[in-house]
């Protein structure tokens, strides 16, 4: 069953916490991965790969650069999850 928006945000929070050590509660939809959460471009790849596995979705390299905020990633996953 497809994940809801809340489940995706919570899942991303867990992933970002595990990969970048950012407290999960800081991971909110309006937060920028790079500017607010200190997730650099390489950690972003790890976040994306973990999200792909968790939400059964493919996020090609070309689309990764458009995922600026947690909200962008959440919407992308909502739209593309199978």
């Amino acid at each position: 069953m497809a994940a809801t928006q809340e489940e995706i945000v919570a899942g991303l929070a867990e992933i970002v916490n595990e990969i970048a050590g950012i407290p999960a509660e800081d991971v909110q939809v309006d937060k920028s991965f790079t500017d607010d959460l200190d997730v650099d471009s390489l950690s972003m790849v790890e976040v994306v790969v973990a999200a792909e596995e968790r939400f059964d979705v493919k996020i090609p390299d070309d689309d990764v650069k458009n995922l600026k905020t947690v909200g962008d990633a959440t919407n992308y996953i909502l739209k593309h999850q199978s």
Binding site: S41, V45, V48, V49, D61
Partner: peptide, 12 residues
């Protein structure tokens, strides 16, 4: 090089 693409390919 395309850093993110190389990183993903190399690691995974």
């Amino acid at each position: 090089q395309e850093g993110q693409a190389v990183f993903r390919w190399a690691v995974y």
